[in-house]
């Protein structure tokens, strides 16, 4: 997914929480927990960068952590919180 253009699904709202954020999908009425504040920042910004890896660079995330972020984003794509654009 690292070189894929992504964005937050337009029907998803994020509510900041001490553990990260709550994501609510208005279309499928599912509630998803984003369990880390840094993933929340990345998810919010996906639409403003060419792809996932450039979003990660822009957020100063070290390359050895990219795999973990890639995995987390994949699971958010599965739950339709993040979509390809």
């Amino acid at each position: 997914m690292l070189d894929t253009p992504l964005k937050l699904h337009p029907s998803v709202a994020l509510r900041p929480e001490p553990f990260g954020a709550l994501a609510y999908h208005y279309d499928n009425r599912r509630l998803i927990f984003l369990k880390h504040p840094s993933i929340v920042d990345v998810v919010k910004d996906l639409g403003d960068h060419p792809d996932l890896q450039s979003t990660l660079s822009a957020h100063g995330i070290a390359e050895h952590q990219w795999d973990a972020y890639d995995k987390a984003i994949c699971s958010l794509i599965e739950s339709d919180v993040v979509v390809q654009r």
Binding site: R15, E17, P18, F19, L22, L31, F33, K35
Partner: peptide, 16 residues
């Protein structure tokens, strides 16, 4: 987990 610990402390607004 840390998540459920946070929830036990309560959130600024209810989830549901």
């Amino acid at each position: 987990t840390a998540l459920t610990d946070r929830m036990k402390d309560g959130l600024d607004a209810p989830i549901c």
